[in-house]
């Protein structure tokens, strides 16, 4: 081993120490603490009195119909959002991927909702979804009215509430994924596209055989990130429907929040958080596996 290499090896821990130390204090230690609490009857107001209860919290959660409802809602939300948002983001990216400066404005317009604070958007969309009452109605119902369709109680109809929130979430998040696709589109080799065009490939053939294969990694990234983000659903339903009607928009994160701060059942809340983490990790790994197999 050269002396230079030896110094490197000796210096490495010194340079790593601050980062590792911070990670240990702010990530690893709280996680371990939460893992311990998840196996106790810890009370938020008196965690010092916690007693070991084994896996009882996990068993209770799996049997808790409201927690299962929250998981089902969140999964349904992800199923609604991920394909639509990914497809829409790709379409928008293909549309606005032009060099003329005028298009930059359009890109900005689509990106704006991702920068605005979610609570503001939640209030805005609550107004958009206003039901018809006393001759007044929100814009969503005004559109239906113009089409000759009956008005809907968007956020109070058990069948419509979650899809309505999903639509709002797609609108809010699509700009970010569009930007990721735009970045990906810059890596599609121009020569390849031109060659395809000379060979007589139409727009669809170019998309199917040139652009999409080149975007595969970007696509994988977008799908994974959108899935994780949609599983973290909380603010929109919490502010727009409070999880209602009848728990139809209750998300896992809201359930964990309520367990922590309303029932103040710290042990169960930690168990819920770990169960949630496990599901999201498994989903992400599964997705990665799927993408890799496609590549082979």
């Amino acid at each position: 081993m050269t002396p230079w290499r030896r110094t490197q090896r000796r210096a490495a821990p010194v340079f790593l120490a601050p980062a590792l130390g911070l990670l240990a204090v702010f990530v690893v230690w709280p996680m371990l603490r939460a893992a311990w609490w998840s196996c106790t009857n810890a009370d938020l107001l008196a965690p010092g009195d916690a007693r070991w209860t084994g896996l009882a919290n996990y068993a209770d959660l799996v049997g808790d119909p409201r927690f299962r409802r929250a998981f089902a809602n969140t999964a349904w939300f992800a199923l609604l959002v991920v394909p639509v948002q990914t497809a829409l983001a790709l379409l928008l990216a293909l549309w606005v991927n032009r060099p003329e400066p005028a298009w930059r404005w359009l890109r900005t317009v689509f990106f704006v909702p991702t920068v605005v604070a979610m609570p503001v958007l939640a209030v805005l969309w609550t107004l958009i979804y206003q039901p018809a009452q006393g001759g007044v109605m929100g814009p969503a119902n005004a559109v239906l009215h113009a089409l000759g369709l009956p008005p809907q109680a968007w956020l109070h109809d058990p069948r419509l509430a979650l899809p309505a929130i999903a639509a709002m979430s797609v609108w809010q998040g699509v700009g970010l994924q569009m930007m990721v696709f735009l970045a990906g589109l810059q890596t599609v080799p121009r020569e390849l596209l031109e060659a395809a065009r000379i060979d007589g490939a139409g727009a669809w053939a170019r998309l199917r055989h040139v652009i999409l294969p080149a975007l595969r990694n970007t696509l994988g990234f977008v799908v994974t990130v959108t899935t994780i983000l949609s599983f973290r659903l909380f603010v929109q339903p919490y502010l727009m429907t409070h999880g209602g009607p009848g728990d139809r928009t209750l998300s896992v994160v809201q359930k964990i929040y309520e367990t922590t701060f309303l029932s103040q059942d710290l042990g169960q809340a930690c168990a819920g958080a770990f169960l949630f983490l496990a599901v999201v990790v498994l989903l992400t790994l599964g997705q990665r596996r799927l993408m890799r197999e496609e590549r082979a």
């Binding site: 109070h156 409070h242 209602g244 009607p245 009848g246 728990d247 309520e258 103040q264």
Partner: peptide, 26 residues
């Protein structure tokens, strides 16, 4: 804290036309 949250959720649904007895039982 749990009681008030559940009661409020039930009242919101009842105001919007939910069937009172099953909603209160939930």
């Amino acid at each position: 804290a749990t009681l008030t949250q559940q009661f409020a959720a039930a009242l919101r649904d009842i105001a919007h036309g939910a069937d009172v007895a099953p909603r209160l039982h939930a």
